[in-house]
């Protein structure tokens, strides 16, 4: 069986076979990374989001085969960065976290957005988060948090 090789949270890894497995299952089952959650299983809610080559991707729609050679970061890897610290502080200050189930995906959506656009407008933040469903807030507090993080983390992105 073929190996699929990729970098996971800054460490090169090889996964044997199961090219038709979902990246989400590989992360949760093989690597015990439970930060990515399954909320819908069809790319609608974003709870399973990870970063692939710095961009947010739904790991529930990602066949393992498509991960070959990629740089994959989950919330577990991202939470060790300075940018995470800025984001989580902003999330706290703005009350952006309620049940927490969408939060890892939301944080990674924020990172993906700020990586591509360090000074987003409110409108751009809303679009950046539009693939991540939250049912507890009305998103306004999350949008505020991302805008605050962009300001507080000036220069980090």
């Amino acid at each position: 069986m073929a190996n699929v090789n990729f970098v996971l949270n800054h460490t090169p890894v090889a996964v044997e076979g199961g090219l038709n497995r979902r990246l989400l299952d590989v992360l949760r089952t093989d690597f015990g990374l439970k930060g990515p959650k399954e909320g819908c299983g069809e790319g609608e809610c974003g709870a399973c989001a990870v970063l692939i080559d710095h961009r947010i991707v739904n790991s529930c729609l990602m066949p393992l085969a498509n991960c070959e050679g990629k740089d994959i970061v989950t919330i577990e890897g991202f939470s060790e960065t300075e940018r995470f610290t800025v984001l989580q502080k902003a999330y706290s200050e703005c009350g952006a976290v309620q049940c927490g189930f969408c939060t890892p995906g939301m944080i990674l959506a924020s990172e993906s957005l700020l990586h591509a656009n360090p000074h987003p407008t409110e409108e751009e933040v809303r679009i950046g988060l539009s693939g991540n469903l939250c049912r507890c807030t009305g998103y306004n507090m999350i949008v505020k948090a991302v805008l605050l993080a962009a300001k507080e983390g000036e220069g980090l992105w």
């Binding site: 439970k34 577990e76 995470f84 706290s92 976290v97 049940c99 927490g100 939060t103 890892p104 944080i107």
Partner: peptide, 12 residues
């Protein structure tokens, strides 16, 4: 700050 803020943002 919410008491469960860290575990929820860090995904733990």
């Amino acid at each position: 700050p919410k008491t469960d803020h860290w575990e929820k943002t860090a995904g733990t």
